[in-house]
Computed example of a mutant assay.
Amino acid sequence: MKLKICGMKYPENMLEVGALLPDYMGFIFWEKSARYFDGIIPELPKSIKKTGVFVDAPLEEILEKIQKHDLQAVQLHGHESVEFCETLKKNMPKLIEVIKVFSILDTFDFAALKPFESVCDYFLFDTKGKLPGGNGTTFDWKVLQQYPSSKPFFLSGGIGIDEMEAVNEILKTNLPVYAIDVNSKLEIEPGLKNINFVKTIRELSQQL
């Protein structure tokens, strides 16, 4: 089970979390977020995929951030179209992963995913809330029983230590869960992760 720690904001905290070797580390480049990052990412272990999180950002901005921060993945958290994702794929360096986010509350029309399958590497399912991510609440994971695709996905939305048992239950199904994405439930304040919480969730994720 891959682990993504998202919403990193402070370089020293990034180094502390990086020492625990999560598979992905997310940086939010959306100015309205309390976890907005506009600094320099310190040198992290090579195994960690630096992931830029964008919300309806222009193509040029995404490409600029990829180059500036040497990103290995891009997470699209807005209303990006299939055409936008396709154009982004064509203009990016080859080995950049594209993660397309879809927000769920109680129901979801999974037919909406099909056109995106060929233009992204992973889906990410998050909880629909006031903000595009970081709301700290979990959606009804039973909805995922209707998932019709074999494309692997990130599970997100209010996941913390207390939710790991439920994550384990999902993994017993045939759903292609690739990674869990954690953020606000591990925080001291927005963007600052509690290193002991991160350590615990890292250990739990390695057991899954």
Rank of each mutant, 00 (worst) to 15 (best):
M1G: 06
M1K: 01
M1A: 06
L3G: 04
L3W: 07
I5E: 00
G7A: 03
G7R: 02
N13G: 09
M14R: 00
G18A: 07
A19P: 10
D23R: 02
M25T: 02
M25N: 02
G26K: 01
G26F: 02
I28C: 06
F29L: 11
W30K: 00
S33N: 03
F37K: 05
D38H: 08
G39D: 10
I41S: 10
P42Q: 03
E43L: 07
P45I: 03
K50N: 06
K50D: 09
G52Y: 07
V55N: 10
D56N: 15
D56Y: 03
A57H: 11
A57P: 06
P58H: 07
E61T: 14
E61G: 01
I62R: 08
E64P: 00
Q67M: 12
K68H: 11
H69I: 00
L71G: 03
L71Y: 05
Q72F: 11
Q72G: 15
Q72L: 14
A73R: 09
Q75F: 09
L76P: 08
H79L: 14
S81W: 10
V82D: 04
K90R: 14
N91V: 00
M92C: 15
M92A: 14
K94M: 11
K94Q: 13
I99W: 08
I99L: 14
V101Y: 06
S103D: 00
I104H: 05
I104V: 15
T107P: 00
D109W: 03
A111S: 15
A112R: 12
L113H: 12
L113W: 08
L113R: 04
L113A: 11
L113E: 10
K114S: 13
P115L: 02
P115F: 06
P115C: 08
E117A: 13
V119W: 09
Y122N: 11
F123L: 04
D126N: 06
D126Y: 01
D126M: 02
D126S: 08
T127W: 07
K128E: 14
K128A: 14
G129T: 07
G133N: 08
G136C: 01
G136V: 08
T137Y: 07
T137R: 10
V143K: 11
V143R: 05
L144C: 01
L144P: 04
Q146F: 07
Y147A: 01
S149K: 00
S149T: 02
P152T: 02
P152K: 13
F153G: 06
S156F: 08
G157N: 09
G158T: 09
I159Q: 05
G160A: 11
I161A: 13
E165W: 01
A166F: 01
A166V: 11
N168H: 11
N168D: 13
T173P: 09
N174R: 14
N174M: 09
V177H: 02
S184Q: 10
E187P: 04
I188K: 11
I188Q: 12
E189G: 00
K193W: 07
I195Y: 05
I195H: 01
V198P: 06
K199C: 04
K199P: 04
T200D: 12
T200R: 12
R202S: 15
L204C: 02
Q207S: 15
L208V: 07
L208S: 14
